[in-house]
């Protein structure tokens, strides 16, 4: 589904991603872990087409298309979804109008007729129960006055509506208490099928208790320095990142 090949990217001429290689297949859950400043969020930005990160070399193919050539809205319509680390508040834009417009743009892209207002409301109702989101929230402006937990729930609610092929969850666990974390993680798990894939970007192993990854990658200084299964996450939790740093460092020395 997603093939990242030697991807390098800079922000303000400073190289942040220094050659990422990663392949994600349908049905898989990949976790990307790493210390602060390792390039995790930059990777999410590059994949979704945020302009502040400049791709300097490398290729990313998504479902056979050259992802880096696509504008952000086409990436979304093609099936990429980013759950933001810090979801934006947009006063004056109602959740209903926002999601209806988004969903119908997806449908148009895929050659489907737009949903009527009543059909849309029905879909919305179904998905709301999935993420246990309060009805009041969806009647308000986008994220306006939402708590941290509500914002993250709202991200997963949007994901449920748009049914992406590849969901990238950027630090979805940050700022969540344990109950909200469980709800959000359950939502993600319920949305998982053999047709879609998930990349979970996180600092901590905690979230991975709920969203169990098939693969765990450690990103450090712009490179994936170690990959493994979910056991790697436990090892990291126990030993910290220094342990890997030493290992990588000594390997480079040899």
């Amino acid at each position: 589904m997603l093939i990242i090949n030697n991807l390098k990217a800079s922000i303000n001429n400073k190289e942040i991603l220094k050659g990422i290689n990663l392949t994600v297949k349908a049905g898989e859950v990949h976790a990307i872990m790493g210390p602060n400043g390792s390039g995790k969020s930059t990777l999410a930005s590059v994949l979704t087409g945020r302009e502040y990160a400049q791709v300097t070399s490398g290729k990313v193919s998504f479902l056979g298309d050259d992802l880096l050539e696509m504008i952000p809205e086409d990436r979304a319509r093609k099936g990429i979804f980013l759950s933001f680390q810090y979801p934006i508040e947009i006063p004056g834009v109602s959740m209903v109008n926002f999601m209806k417009t988004a969903l119908n743009e997806h449908r148009k892209y895929n050659g489907l007729a737009p949903l009527s207002a009543s059909d849309f409301l029905k879909v919305m109702r179904d998905k709301k129960s999935l993420v246990e989101i309060d009805s009041n929230l969806t009647n308000r402006a986008v994220n306006e006055g939402f708590s941290g937990g509500e914002k993250k729930k709202n991200e997963i609610f949007q994901m449920a509506l748009l049914e992406p092929k590849l969901a990238i969850l950027d630090e979805t666990d940050s700022g969540l208490d344990i109950d909200a974390l469980r709800i959000v993680a359950n939502g993600v798990t319920k949305l998982k099928t053999s047709e879609n894939a998930t990349i979970v970007i996180t600092h901590y192993q905690r979230l991975l208790d709920y969203i169990v990854p098939d693969f765990v990658h450690v990103l450090m200084d712009g490179r994936i320095v170690k990959s493994g299964t979910k056991e790697l996450a436990y090892e990291l939790e126990e030993k910290g990142y220094d342990w890997i740093k030493k290992e990588v460092y000594s390997e480079e020395k040899i």
Partner: peptide, 19 residues
Amino acid sequence: YLRSRGISEREARLMLMYA
């Protein structure tokens, strides 16, 4: 944020102006 949900840039601008 709006574009990342599949809304075209033009439509996203309109939504923000209208808001």
